[in-house]
Amino acid sequence: MTPEIISSDFEVTKETETSKTYKLSIDKIQGSVDQIEALEQAIYKVLNTEKYEYPIYSFSYGIDLDNLTGKDVDYVKIELKRRIQECLLQDSRIETADNFNFTVNGDEILCTFDVSSIYGKTTITKGVNV
C-alpha cells in the first residue's frame, strides 16, 4: 500500500479577537464599549484583582500587591513597576507599559504610567497602600 499524498490549498489568516465588552460601573452595566475603552476597563479590572485570591481566575491573572504593605517606599516603587508590567504585558493588545511616575502621599503611593496598545496610548493611575 502506497501512501497517498494529499494536496490542500488553504490560507491561514490571523484574526484579532473583538474587544467589545459590557461597560461596567460600580453598580450597573451601561451598554458596551470596545477598543481603547474596553482595554482600559480590562486594565482596571486586572490591576484591582489580587493575584491568587479568587479561585475563578487562573494563577496568571491579577497583580500581587498584598505583600508590598509595610515595605520601604523605594522598594515598593521598583516592585510596583515590575509587577504592573508583568501583569499587563500578558494581554496581547498591550505593547508597552512605561513612563512610570510615583507620588507618595502618607501611606499611599500613586503610580501613573502610559500604556501603548494596538488601539493607541492611554494613561493609567493606580494607588497602593504601603
Rank of each mutant, 00 (worst) to 15 (best):
Gln41Cys: 07
Lys121Ser: 10
Arg93Gln: 06
Lys81Cys: 03
Phe100Pro: 00
Ile26Pro: 04
Glu79Cys: 08
Val128Pro: 01
Thr112Ile: 13
Gln41Tyr: 08
Phe100Ser: 08
Val73Pro: 10
Tyr44Phe: 15
Asp91Ile: 08
Gly120Thr: 04
Leu24Asn: 00
Asp27Gly: 15
Tyr119Ala: 04
Asn48Cys: 05
Asn67Leu: 02
Lys121Ala: 11
Glu37Met: 02
Leu88Glu: 07
Leu47Met: 12
Lys45Phe: 10
Lys28Ala: 15
Tyr54Phe: 14
Asp9His: 12
Ile29His: 03
Glu53Ser: 14
Thr123Cys: 03
Gln35Tyr: 11
Thr122Arg: 10
Ala38Gly: 02
Val73Arg: 10
Ile124Leu: 03
Ile29Tyr: 06
Tyr22Ile: 15
Phe10Ala: 08
Asp9Ala: 11
Lys77Tyr: 06
Val104Thr: 11
Thr13His: 14
Ser32Phe: 13
Ile26Leu: 14
Leu68Lys: 03
Tyr75Lys: 07
Asp64Ser: 11
Ala42Gly: 04
Glu15Phe: 10
Asp72His: 10
Asn67Glu: 14
Ala97Cys: 02
Phe10Asp: 11
Thr18Gly: 09
Gly127Thr: 15
Asp98Ser: 14
Phe10Val: 07
Asn105Trp: 01
Gln85Ala: 00
Ile6Tyr: 13
Thr21Trp: 03
Arg93Leu: 05
Ile56Phe: 09
Glu50Tyr: 12
Thr96Trp: 07
Ser8Ile: 15
Thr123Trp: 03
Val128Tyr: 01
Ile109Gly: 01
Ile124Ala: 01
Tyr22Arg: 09
Val76His: 05
Arg82Tyr: 06
Gln90Asn: 07
Ile109His: 01
Lys51Leu: 08
Leu24Asp: 02
Lys23Tyr: 13
Asp9Tyr: 07
Ser92Thr: 14
Leu89Glu: 09
Ile29Arg: 09
Thr18Phe: 02
Thr123Gly: 00
Arg82Trp: 01
Gln30Met: 11
Ser8Tyr: 12
Gly70Asn: 03
Lys81Ile: 00
Val33Pro: 01
Pro3Glu: 14
Thr2Phe: 05
Leu110Glu: 13
Ser8Phe: 12
Glu40Lys: 15
Tyr57Glu: 08
Ser8Asp: 10
Ile118Asp: 10
Ile6Cys: 00
Ile43Gly: 08
Ile56Pro: 02
Tyr44Leu: 14
Arg93Trp: 09
Asp114Ile: 00
Glu95Lys: 14
Thr49Ala: 08
Thr96Tyr: 07
